[in-house]
Amino acid sequence: MKSIIITGASSGIGRATAELFLAEGWAVGLLARSADVLSKLAERHKNAIPLVTDVTDPTAVSGAFETFQNETGRLDVLFNNAGIFAPGGTIDEIQLEDWYQSVSVNLNGMFLSAREAFRIMRHQAPQGGRIINNGSIAAHVPRPNSVHYTATKHAITGLTRSLSLDGRAFGIACGQIDIGNARTQMVQNLVENAIAGGQQPDPTMAVDDAARSVLHMASLPAEANVQFMTVMATTMPYIGRG
């Protein structure tokens, strides 16, 4: 049985991806803070392993990955997904606590999870594995009033490239999926804000299509890797945005 840890597994893209991988028969480490949601998922799937963890806590993250390794014996894939979109504004309107929280979750949290996954994959036998980082369209072009989110997501692209380079010697592949306007609660909030402001909201797509894209990346043989994938609502203003 192949194994994966999914961070941010209690909602949105992480939840949809976890449901899909569980249905496909993978052993899935469900890493998130919401114990009740993870418990309900585990009740329905014998191959689910709840890992109640705050991704910003180095000790907790290390313990969660160790627990998963002890239960499965191996980590094949990390879907490094956990992230937040703090209240927006121009840079002078962004509250410092929102900036620090964005960096803590979106960047530090992904670094900590990738660090633990890399360590396990480097030392397991057979050696190797795959890390998939959730970058977002914002890793390339910004939405208005999103300097905190955009800065952290641009940083994820650097993380992805560095992991790809450093992982070669150990059979560790790293790729990035950039998802545009999957219908999660975060995107729904943006849609509602646009409508409230008298604007036409961007088109959206089903979150399950994002999950299937992650499954494709995760299922490739070791000799192949999707370095960067962009999957988005067909008519969203990505080309020409920014």
Rank of each mutant, 00 (worst) to 15 (best):
D178G: 09
N47D: 08
E192D: 15
D178E: 15
T53V: 13
G88I: 00
V52Y: 04
G129T: 11
V77F: 00
E24I: 00
N189R: 15
A210E: 09
F85Q: 05
P126S: 07
D178Q: 06
F79M: 08
L163T: 00
H148Q: 04
V52P: 08
D202W: 12
Q176N: 01
A218V: 04
G25C: 00
L51G: 14
H216E: 11
M110F: 08
N193H: 03
G73I: 00
S162Y: 02
G14F: 01
T234S: 13
N181F: 14
Q188C: 10
A173V: 00
D209W: 06
S136F: 05
L20A: 08
S104E: 08
G8Q: 11
A233F: 03
T7G: 01
D36S: 13
T152V: 09
M232I: 10
P144A: 05
I132N: 04
P144E: 13
S62F: 12
V147M: 08
L96C: 01
K2A: 10
V61I: 15
T234I: 09
Y238T: 15
S164D: 02
F111A: 04
A155Q: 09
A151T: 10
G242D: 07
N47K: 14
N108Q: 11
A194P: 02
A138I: 03
E192Q: 14
L159G: 08
G158S: 06
D76Q: 04
R119P: 08
V55F: 07
T184L: 07
I177T: 05
N47R: 15
H216V: 10
P58M: 15
H148S: 01
T160P: 01
T56M: 13
L38M: 10
V61Y: 13
L41I: 13
P87G: 02
L51H: 04
G198C: 05
T150D: 06
V147D: 06
L41R: 01
V231D: 11
V207A: 03
I4E: 07
G158Y: 07
W26R: 02
P144K: 12
A42N: 10
G73H: 07
N181Q: 12
G158P: 02
V52A: 04
E192Y: 06
P237T: 02
T230A: 01
K2N: 04
G129I: 10
F118T: 00
M1I: 10
R183V: 01
R143W: 14
T56D: 11
T157I: 13
I91D: 13
G63I: 02
I49T: 15
Q95W: 12
N70E: 14
A210G: 15
F65E: 08
F85C: 14
G89C: 08
L30C: 04
H216M: 15
L107N: 12
L112A: 07
E43P: 00
V187I: 15
A139F: 07
A48Y: 10
G167T: 06
P203Y: 12
L30N: 04
V214G: 12
D202C: 05
N106R: 11
